[in-house]
């Protein structure tokens, strides 16, 4: 999930020699920005989501997607899966800053852990007639998408999978009459018999 390099103010150790630099180091250097999926196990107290989201906005971190729901009512815990992006250094800081929040019990780097699984669900509405309609239905079968609503002129598909698969499906549906789209954002879990939470 590595992206093309982007230019970004680097927070530390910009080794560009003649740059005037500064006390805050505002040196612009091209650095590899990567995407990372983090799962946070949190105490499900009021405001916990605001804390997590507030941390991202306060420190200028990105959120590409975020999902949250209570996962264990008795233990009072929720799982927040966040897809974020940044340099390696920023991603390391994000993890540490999340752990600093009092109600955050654990942060799992799903992207770099062995056996991390990521899935997303999308609802895709495609409107059209004739050839295009047939083609949409044919492609949906290849993607194992389910048809959950049908009219004479439209389908709604439900498709699950890794985000890239969903991206692909969406791109294929666009020329076939995609009119509306809703995605859940990424969910995550670890393979194997061990559980976290």
């Amino acid at each position: 999930m590595t992206r093309a390099p982007r230019t970004r103010a680097r927070p530390a150790r910009a080794a560009v020699k003649d740059d005037p630099a500064s006390a805050y180091d505002m040196t612009e250097v091209a650095e590899e920005i990567e995407s990372r999926t983090l799962a946070c196990i949190v105490d499900n107290e009021p405001g916990v989501l605001a804390r997590v989201v507030g941390l991202f906005s306060a420190r200028g971190y990105n959120i590409e997607s975020l999902t949250v729901a209570e996962t264990d009512r008795n233990a009072h815990s929720s799982r927040i899966t966040i897809v974020t992006s940044g340099t390696d250094h920023v991603l390391e800081q994000i993890e540490q800053q999340l752990l600093r929040l009092v109600p955050v019990a654990r942060v799992i780097d799903v992207t770099n852990s062995t056996g991390g699984i990521e899935r997303e669900l999308a609802l895709v509405k495609v409107a059209g007639v004739g050839e295009k309609r047939v083609e949409a239905l044919r492609l949906s079968e290849i993607f194992r998408a389910r048809v959950i609503d049908t009219t004479n002129e439209s389908f709604i598909f439900e498709v699950t999978g890794a985000s890239q698969k969903i991206d692909q499906f969406i791109e294929l549906m666009r020329p076939l009459g995609l009119v509306e789209l809703s995605r859940t954002g990424v969910l995550s879990i670890q393979r194997g018999k061990e559980g976290v939470g």
């Binding site: 927070p11 530390a12 150790r13 250094h89 390391e92 800081q93 540490q96 800053q97 752990l99 600093r100």
Partner: peptide
């Protein structure tokens, strides 16, 4: 004592 202070500004 705060892990987030480590490697924040300086490696």
């Amino acid at each position: 004592i705060d892990p987030s202070s480590i490697n924040k500004n300086v490696r």
